[in-house]
């Protein structure tokens, strides 16, 4: 929980109450907030690795961002219940969908991901109260941005999957993988690729 103090016009983090959801970091327009442990320093290299393929068989490559409390748990439940789904997806876990910065998704696409799958808690159920609401709004803006740089907006899907929806997770990932296979490999216009990704 940050708060504005009267004297200095800078934001402050009260460490004792900060729950580590990362929503502030993802929303800050100047990237002034740095998130520990689940921030860009850690997630960026993960995204870079996630889009790499050791063999051709693992393409199309799908990167999934799942929130710890709901969607990641739902994916675990799919495993516990043995609901099978295609092996193309690489999961990156964040504590809250609120902490999923747009830059992660852009980085994934610009580095060659064919599809990005985002999932958080159902509205009203967020472990950090409202992180997911901000996330879903943010991702809607992102779809517009993707269209502008020439990436089909179908390559990004945003879902709300709870910890008990194992079957739903498997079904959604399967459907998404099939859709991306039909769309084919993501062709990023080369001029866009040359935009340097700032540490952000």
């Amino acid at each position: 929980m940050g708060l504005f103090t009267e004297s200095i016009k800078k934001a402050q983090v009260i460490k004792t109450v900060c729950k580590g959801c990362g929503t502030c970091f993802a929303e800050c327009p100047t990237s002034a907030i740095i998130m520990n442990h689940y921030g860009s320093k850690q997630i960026n290299p993960m995204v870079n690795e996630a889009v790499k393929s050791l063999t051709e068989e693992s393409k199309p490559k799908i990167v999934a961002f799942l929130c710890n409390w709901c969607s990641y748990a739902g994916a675990d439940l799919a495993g516990v219940s043995r609901y099978q789904y295609p092996p193309n997806v690489r999961v990156i876990r964040t504590m809250c969908s609120g902490g999923m910065s747009k830059s992660y998704i852009l980085r994934a696409f610009l580095n060659g991901a064919d599809g990005v799958f985002i999932s958080g808690c159902h509205i009203g159920d967020c472990h950090y109260i409202s992180g997911n609401e901000k996330a879903y709004l943010r991702m809607d803006h992102l779809k517009t941005l993707l269209r502008k740089i020439g990436i089909e907006e179908e390559r990004l899907e945003i879902h709300q999957i709870s910890a008990s929806e194992g079957k739903k997770f498997a079904e959604k990932i399967t459907a998404f993988t099939k859709k991306i296979s039909k769309l084919g490999d993501s062709k990023i216009p080369t001029k866009i690729r040359k935009i340097k990704m700032k540490a952000y």
């Binding site: 870079n48 068989e57 675990d76 495993g79 099978q84 092996p87 990156i92 498997a170």
Partner: peptide, 27 residues
């Protein structure tokens, strides 16, 4: 939970995925 249990009939793909996931964690 997110690999061997859900790709039970595709051992090679599951192995490649496991390698990817290890590489991602190492990163």
């Amino acid at each position: 939970d997110q690999c061997s249990w859900v790709h039970m009939h595709e051992p090679e793909a599951a192995t490649e995925k496991a390698e990817d996931l290890v590489r991602i964690s190492v990163a």
